[in-house]
Design a protein around this nucleic acid. Sequence first.
DNA 1: ACTACAACCTGGGGGC
DNA 2: TGCCCCCAGGTTGTAG
Length: 271
Amino acid sequence: MPELPEVEVTRQGITPHLLNQTVSALVVRNASLRWPVPQVAQNIVGQTITHIRRRAKYLLIETQAGITIIHLGMSGSLRILPASTPIEKHDHIDMLLANGQVLRFNDPRRFGAWLWYELPEENHPLLARLGPEPLSEAFNPLQLQQAIANKKKAIKLCLMDNHIVVGVGNIYANEALFAAGIHPQTPAAKVDIARLTVLVTEVKRILALAIKQGGTTLKDFTNADGKPGYFAQKLHVYGRGGQTCTHCGNLLSEIKLGQRTTVFCGRCQTR
DNA sequence: ACTACAACCTGGGGGC
DNA sequence: TGCCCCCAGGTTGTAG
């Protein structure tokens, strides 16, 4: 489920339930995630949660002793529930709180991650080399232009490259390129600064709107309270290959780019 | 260094 | 119903 908006919606949902709470136990039913859940993840037990932050699509649950790093992968989700709630299929991890609540991690495909780190998180190998946050000032037309100055690969692949900008996955890359009128296959370095300026604006606008709408619910995304998101109603191209362009009525094209389905309007997205 | 793409998993949907 | 194939929100690791 998660691109940046879905992760941010999750963060906002779990934060009030976790902040200043003490962890009473960590129950790992299935440690086979993207990487094995390490034994040291248990170091959070007895700790009090001081901050819940997000970097790219990683959630960081901070304590004095260290940070739990969570990634939802393709199909992960986090819920806040009473600890007595029955376990369902793919409920792999429970972080039990002293107040009787539980943070429950469910992930059918197990592409997600649950890690523990005791140094400043900017040093963590997974986080150290990430590009700027898309909703920050650090992501701007000049930064983007410099980052892709020598890139021959498609602009869409660059938009989805975590070294260039984080948090833009397949849904929002398709949507932002449509909104900016840029053909997804255009070699990145050939997109002029005027177009890049529009692209940056659209990425920020679309991500912010998706967060406000509670994320995009495609199959089963729900926030920490079990409620769906409503951004799917605003999608112009993603999942609409072969249907008509909402702007010009042209039939939308569908191709593969970097193994990912790419939908665009050949008339509106020129370059 | 850049680019391409296989791999990690499960489940749902379509075709036969 | 059942089987087989393809597809899916992400990211790393490897090979060229």
